[in-house]
Design a protein around this nucleic acid. Structure first.
Lengths: 178, 178
DNA sequence: ATCTTATTGATAATGATTATCGTTATCTAT
DNA sequence: ATAGATAACGATAATCATTATCAATAAGAT
């Protein structure tokens, strides 16, 4: 079942001094909404749960949630960070499949077992060889989805690369920053 | 041996109409310098090879090189894109090990074989299941390097998360558009 | 109910990346 | 070599995601 307010707060452990309406609203929204959410998505969706919430507060709260480990930050290179709620159970581990044509993101969770084997082995070796403590990992596949494959069959030298960054073509731009 | 001007240009195939001094300078610099280079690194290093080159040109050239597949763009989330030359040979395939404390990046190329097995299997399944054409993949491990482990032994609730994003604490910020 | 101070939010500042647009220089054809 | 068409350059202004400030507000402790 979906986590309630008390559960959400509990997940913060002693990592914050005060639990406020904006924090409840942001975390609640993320926990309830699957997928990769941008800051503007959040801002635009909180008029009900927390009217008058400011962008600054959202950014600050996201930073808090991220370092607490309750949410994950994802940077695709389109100049805008995305956030994703991390369910408490380990089962929901997944990775991303990104279309370079339209920017669509697909989550997949196949081969989790094989992946974990590889990852565990790699982690041990990296720890031994470089003195690193591994906490997390990301795997992403880049390519073209069915629709984009059909549309752009073999015209590589197009003016704009087409890529996750295609979003940049519009108005201003990011910064991407990563 | 290191690729010469003619080699560099050849690698562009028919993907650009004219070969110019700025392009030669940017690609030459990247091909010669290992690691993850920022736009400012490039700008600051080209006073010799191409005096007077403008930021705009650098950005445009990087975009061209990226969609041609000669270089790879890396976004770590610190608001600044990095670029890396892709050697022609397949041997140099590697991934990144990122320290959340100081942002240091270590390249590693262990377990390439196991990784390739996993990747191939995953690619086939994803292609079948989602109609995707996979072109590339990225794997990165996040954690703390030896130095940072020692320094911050167990004081998680620190004001600033410490993370790749630590760079953001300084002056302005990204936008990490990546 | 009162007090301390963590949080908030309006506003200005930052800085990476793009859009413009007149100028320059690469290639092609002569 | 030379001339012409136009791809590419570069100075400058514009965008926009993210941060820094700072006075006002409100959680949580006493």
């Amino acid at each position: 079942m979906r986590p309630g307010p008390a559960d959400l707060r509990r997940r913060m452990g002693g990592r914050c001094r005060r639990w406020t309406a904006p924090r409840e609203a942001v975390l609640g929204f993320l926990s309830r909404r699957p997928g990769h959410v941008s800051v503007k998505d959040i801002y635009g969706s909180l008029s009900g749960a927390c009217p008058g919430i400011g962008m600054t507060t959202i950014y600050r709260t996201l930073g808090l949630l991220e370092r607490t480990g309750v949410i994950q930050r994802i940077t695709l290179g389109d100049g805008q960070a995305r956030y994703e709620f991390k369910p408490a159970d380990r089962k929901s581990h997944h990775h991303h499949l990104i279309c370079l044509g339209c920017g669509k993101i697909i989550d997949y969770s196949d081969f989790v077992q094989e992946e974990l084997d590889l990852v565990r082995k790699t982690e041990e070796a990296l720890a031994r060889r470089h003195g690193f403590l591994i906490l997390d990992h990301n795997i992403e596949f880049l390519g073209f989805c069915g629709t984009c494959r059909a549309r752009s069959a073999g015209d590589l030298p197009r003016p704009v690369p087409a890529g996750v960054r295609s979003a940049r073509k519009r108005p201003g731009n990011q910064k991407e920053r990563s």
